[in-house]
């Protein structure tokens, strides 16, 4: 794995919501509108199903709305907005030519680290109940640091490895002890049961 540079920033979005500057959100060509159409299409179907579910929620003799009306109101508005976004993106789609071949693969390759970290996070969370917080988070931090380039197996450096181990111990076993003994919050114990 390549070592990641230290800094990135986003000046294009307020309120911390965006992706790094200069990075296309999705592959160019038709991919961006298609991604919006797919997402909103899935959401329309999902919200439609929830809308039907909400019809079965009980009404009340004390109030005119009952427990299903507010969700139905929100779901109805959501479906309208989803359809409006789909209509807008369909217009965008017409004016665009298909992107060059291999763009999707290149996009996935550029985001490989994000997907790898996501996979590692999923593994960490699923292993949490039986490995316990301390062990699982130690392994997660060590593997995360290796994945992101803080330590390398090809060119091992004892100093970097020691720093990585100290960081992992502090934020796994150290955090576990801090929360258990100081804040009286017991994180999952798992193997250390």
């Amino acid at each position: 794995m390549k070592t990641q540079p230290t800094h990135s920033f986003d000046t294009t979005h307020s309120l911390d919501t965006g992706s790094p500057e200069g990075e296309p959100l999705v592959p160019a060509g038709r991919a961006n509108p298609l991604a919006h159409i797919m997402l909103n299409g899935i959401l329309v179907v999902l919200f439609g199903y929830f809308f039907l579910q909400a019809r079965d929620l009980p009404s009340s003799m004390w109030e005119p709305l009952g427990s299903g009306s507010f969700p139905r109101l929100v779901l109805g508005l959501l479906m309208l907005i989803n359809l409006a976004i789909i209509a807008k993106e369909l217009r965008n789609l017409k004016g665009r030519s298909p992107g060059a071949k291999g763009q999707a693969a290149a996009w996935i390759w550029r985001h490989r680290l994000a997907f790898a970290v996501l996979g590692l996070l999923a593994g960490f969370i699923l292993a949490l109940p039986w490995l316990g917080f301390a062990v699982a988070s130690f392994l997660f931090i060590m593997l995360g640091q290796w994945m992101l380039g803080a330590i390398s197996l090809k060119q091992p450096c004892i100093k970097k490895l020691c720093i990585a181990v100290v960081i992992a111990v502090v934020f796994s076993f150290g955090a576990d002890a801090l929360f258990r003994d100081v804040f009286v919050i017991s994180l999952p114990r798992g193997l250390l049961g």
């Binding site: 990641q4 230290t6 990135s8 997660f140 995360g144 380039g149 934020f171 955090a175």
Partner: peptide, 16 residues
């Protein structure tokens, strides 16, 4: 401080 350290540590803090 490199991102390779910050990201895993902060993700653990999120889980906590």
């Amino acid at each position: 401080i490199p991102k390779s350290v910050i990201v895993p540590v902060v993700l653990v803090c999120c889980v906590i």
